[in-house]
């Protein structure tokens, strides 16, 4: 793991898997053409199936909905929000909410997903899983997003890896919602490059969990001095 880059990465502006059709659509004025909404909605379905995520294209759907309320499809909105949950702590979820109609924040499904968002953002992971598993609506909402559970586990694990250098196995297991004795837990943390020693999981130091005291020194650039050097000519 590289020590000079954060574990967090912004949602890519131009993901490599984005087809050319979509690229030219969202780059130009075609993005406002209501006839194109189905192309973008199909692309969202592909994202859901292939465990891919394209924020900019999904925002373009919400933009079309914003201008053409008759196009609005609640299932699509839920799917976009579900995908945005997997991008936390990126601001994607809120960026989507800003584009929704006033008042739709209190719609049943939207407010349910907002609750999940709050729990994830506030790092209340145990509660997150409790809420998520208790209410069957959530299973329906996230059904189309293949690999949703794993994606959320990765969000949580990233947050843990940013803060901890060592963490007890039991605590991490709870955060990731694996029951005691579930071998999938071992498999998952190994796949993420973590090692276990006794009852403790060791996380290699990285940019975020290093916590090294530093002194930031000022850095004077040559350009800042040009004027002063210029004065010496006048002498």
């Amino acid at each position: 793991m590289s020590n000079n880059k954060s574990l967090l990465t912004p949602s890519p502006l131009n993901p490599t898997f984005r087809p050319d059709v979509i690229q030219s659509l969202i780059d130009g004025v075609d993005r406002y053409n209501p006839d194109n909404v189905s192309i973008l909605e199909e692309y969202l379905s592909t994202q859901l199936q292939n465990e891919e995520y394209d924020l900019m294209a999904n925002l373009a759907i919400l933009k079309l909905y914003q201008f053409n309320p008759h196009l609005v499809n609640d299932v699509v909105i839920s799917n976009i929000l579900v995908k945005a949950l997997t991008a936390i702590p990126n601001p994607d979820f809120n960026l989507c909410l800003y584009l929704l109609q006033e008042g739709s924040l209190s719609d049943d499904n939207v407010s349910k997903l907002i609750l999940l968002q709050q729990l994830l953002e506030e790092a209340r992971y145990q509660e997150f899983w409790e809420v998520y598993e208790k209410d069957d609506t959530y299973k329906d909402l996230s059904m189309e997003a293949v690999g949703f559970d794993t994606a959320i586990r990765k969000v949580i694990l990233t947050a843990i890896c940013m803060a901890y250098q060592t963490i007890s196995v039991d605590l991490l297991r709870t955060y990731l919602n694996y029951p005691k004795g579930d071998t999938k837990f071992e498999t998952f943390i190994q796949s993420q490059g973590l090692t276990t020693k006794d009852d403790v999981i060791i996380i290699n130091t990285n940019y975020d969990n290093e916590a090294k005291p530093t002194v930031i020194r000022e850095n004077i650039k040559f350009e800042q001095l040009t004027k002063v050097i210029g004065y010496s000519n006048e002498l």
Binding site: A163, Y164, Q165, T166, I167, N209, E210, A211
Partner: peptide, 10 residues
Amino acid sequence: DFCLKQDMIH
């Protein structure tokens, strides 16, 4: 900035 080693905050 800080890091956690189990129950200890550095």
